[in-house]
Amino acid sequence: MTDAISFEVPWARIDKFDPPSVFATLREERPLARMVYPDGHVGWIASSYELVREVLSDPRFSHSCEVGHFPVTHQGQVIPTHPLIPGMFIHMDPPEHTRYRRLLTGEFTVRRTNRLIPHVEAVAAEQIDVMRAHGAPADLVTTFAKPLVLRVLSEMVGLPYDEQDRYLPAVILLHDAEADPAEAVAAYEQAGAFFDEVIERRRKQPRDDLISALVNEELTGEELRNMVTLLLFAGYETTESALAVGVFALLHHTEALAALRADPARLDAAIEELLRYLTVNQYHTYRTALEDIKLNGEVIKQGDTVTVSLPAANRDPAKFSCPEKLDIDRETSGHVAFGFGIHQCLGQNLARVELRAGLSALLRAFPDLRLAVTADEVPLRLRGSVFAVKNLPVSW
């Protein structure tokens, strides 16, 4: 207990792009450190690349809400263990997790998502037109990143983009650490009711989307609603933040941007490096020990929470040389920006398609794209599960 760090310490990001400096010390001295959560529960935090992957791939560590003890929400409230929520497979272990995820896996393969490239590129081109019509300076978040990702994701899932006011507030509020919890719950309930409505529409008039495909499976209405919720909530905020913060990083790292403009064929490699370097999924990745487990010379007791830091793992010098540097020519294979193991992000291939289309469109359309304010004036969202910029003023 005497050497346990506070839960707040590893999340105290003080730089635009770097995770807290404490991780460098932890990786070197205590890559598996005791950590005291806000409700007094003493668990652990893993900060090395090797340990993060080990925890996330070991079936003795559970992500089930029935046994989990993740004792804090964005607002600092304790989350009690509770029965499985039908369809919300992110908080399940096999075989329940496997059953639900298998229904979606085929829709998110590289081959399937690559079929969407022409459409995603067309949406990106339309948002470029929106930026031009707005004129410089413009907020890249609201005129480009958010609408691009939401339009693509909504259409793929089967949610009407022109009715986004009925479901988007829930996504925004539940990712916002400063939001009123009661307001967030009300928005969540409103979104759930809307999803039920759309599901019934698709039962009567199916289309080429995920909801129409899922209504033909043996799923209850509750299961289907929660699967739709998960797809939207997991796929929107993370990708639009990765796109906006990725642009911010490139505009700040002018040498990398110049190299990419000189050779657009390096874009795919640059995207992987941005994913590694930024790791916008900054915390709330945790597991619970199902039994006593020896790890890194320590005994993790049954019921202990182990939080893993994906940003720290992606900055581990044992895996990536000079990890604090943005290097678009780096070998990035194995990065954990999308997690690892059976819960690795289902939509990562779609995210890559969106990032590639978005960045490519911006580079082509605005060869002199630049920040309209100083880098220090760009407002960051440092709390919450996703690292993001609140807005990104740009000129061209």
Rank of each mutant, 00 (worst) to 15 (best):
I172G: 05
V353S: 05
L290Y: 01
A262V: 07
M131W: 06
D162A: 13
F320A: 05
V72F: 12
L174S: 15
L326Q: 07
L173H: 05
T98L: 10
E222P: 09
H74N: 14
G358M: 01
T279L: 01
E155M: 05
I300L: 05
A124N: 09
F23L: 11
A182I: 10
E255H: 06
H63Q: 13
A12G: 08
L32N: 00
T332S: 12
F7G: 01
Y37L: 15
I199D: 12
R30L: 10
L210Y: 10
S6D: 15
S309P: 09
L26Q: 02
S333V: 11
L84I: 13
K16H: 11
Q205S: 15
R151F: 04
R166A: 13
H97W: 08
S385I: 04
E222L: 12
K204H: 13
Q205D: 15
G341D: 00
K16T: 15
P59K: 00
H74I: 06
A179T: 09
N296A: 15
K319V: 10
L103V: 09
C322D: 15
G341C: 03
I172N: 11
N349D: 13
A259F: 03
D139W: 00
V78L: 08
F366R: 07
F23N: 00
H252T: 15
Y277E: 01
P20G: 01
L380W: 05
C65T: 14
A187W: 03
E324P: 08
A124S: 10
S241G: 06
H253F: 06
R261C: 14
L56V: 12
L150P: 03
T254W: 00
T285A: 08
T143D: 13
A242E: 09
D180W: 04
F89T: 09
G347S: 06
D165E: 14
G68H: 09
S21F: 05
V110I: 13
D180F: 04
S309F: 04
G68I: 11
T73F: 02
D304F: 02
Y167R: 00
K16R: 11
F144C: 07
V228W: 00
E240T: 13
A138V: 15
A256K: 01
P317S: 05
E377Q: 14
Y100F: 14
I271G: 01
L274I: 10
F89Y: 14
Q344F: 02
R132M: 10
V78M: 07
L103Q: 11
V52N: 02
F17C: 10
Y188H: 14
Q302H: 11
